[in-house]
Amino acid sequence: MDIKGKVAVVSGGASGMGLEIVKRLLSLGAKAAIFDMNAAAGEAVVAEFGDSVMFADVNVTSEESVQAGVNATMEAFGAIHICVNCAGIATGSKTLGRDGPFPLDLWQKTLAVNLTGTFNVLRLCAEQMAKNTPDNDDGVRGAIVNTASVAAFEGQVGQAAYSASKGGIVGMTLPIARDLSTIGIRVNTIAPGLINTPMFESLPAPVYEALSSTPLFPKRLGRASEIAHMVTSIIENDYINGECIRMDAGLRMQPK
């Protein structure tokens, strides 16, 4: 798919990896709709980039909220060709800890945002993608990229809910790709490792240095720009479909 002239929806696009993805898509000539709940950050992106980007205050767990965001995107840009799901939360609690069993409401919230939220956004974007005129002779109408985590494969102590939510994203990638193949929509997932975000920069220096040495090679945290590069590479390469791609520099997480 040629990204130039296309319209992308990026959930969680107001900050972190999502924001880097938005910026890269814009640099390649796309327009972007940011679905996020951080209105101040979202509007700041709009102020910086102007008419090529819009912000919608979207709660990914709500069908009505996502549908309103999709409607606003269609009104502003007339189509949706790309969907990138970055919205998510990181939670932690032991299955049985000092304060008792894992709080069920925390379990449900984690899966609601990370797993159900991802599916909620992509299914409603796919409905609009199906209306697109094919982009090329392959019949491409859309591309979806979801964000999982290496925790889907090597969850650490206290990550039962987070790992389950990210493992669910990995597990649903191929079935959804199969579902949408008949209408020319590809579906892929990336599984980042330790990516340098503002959260990491706030850590004490010894902790930051220890985490930076964990990957196999190169011995550093990943950059959000590297994630964004992979996302756009997946979008541009029509022969990548139904895949989960780890981006972790050979990292294998330890129990804790």
Rank of each mutant, 00 (worst) to 15 (best):
I190T: 07
N85W: 05
S65D: 12
K166E: 09
A33P: 00
G171F: 06
L194Y: 05
G92N: 06
P192N: 00
P103N: 10
G242H: 10
A177C: 08
P218H: 01
G69A: 10
T95C: 07
M37K: 11
D57C: 06
L251G: 09
E63I: 14
F119T: 05
M129I: 12
N136C: 14
T110F: 10
A249T: 04
S233K: 10
R186Y: 04
C244R: 00
S11W: 03
S65P: 13
G18I: 11
V121M: 01
L28Q: 14
D2F: 05
M253K: 08
A152N: 02
T116Q: 15
A160T: 11
N38K: 02
V113G: 10
Q128K: 15
T110K: 03
I169E: 04
A160H: 04
S93P: 03
K166F: 11
I183Y: 13
T61K: 10
G100H: 07
C244I: 15
A210H: 15
L106W: 11
L180Y: 12
G29D: 07
G69N: 04
G13Y: 03
L251P: 03
I235A: 07
E63M: 05
G158K: 06
A33R: 03
A76H: 13
S15D: 13
S52A: 09
F55L: 02
A160D: 01
L122T: 11
T133S: 12
P134E: 00
K94W: 12
V60A: 02
G5V: 08
E226L: 11
R223N: 15
R178W: 08
M253L: 11
N196P: 07
I240T: 15
A177N: 01
R178A: 13
L122H: 04
C86V: 11
V84N: 04
R252A: 06
R220S: 04
A41C: 01
V150I: 12
G13Q: 05
N136L: 15
V187E: 05
V70N: 14
A112K: 01
A79S: 13
M172A: 02
L106P: 01
S181P: 04
A14W: 03
F217I: 09
L180N: 01
I169C: 01
S52F: 08
I144R: 05
S181L: 07
N71D: 15
S52D: 10
V45A: 13
A87V: 11
F153D: 11
A8F: 08
F77T: 04
H81Y: 14
D135Q: 03
A228D: 06
D99E: 07
P192Q: 00
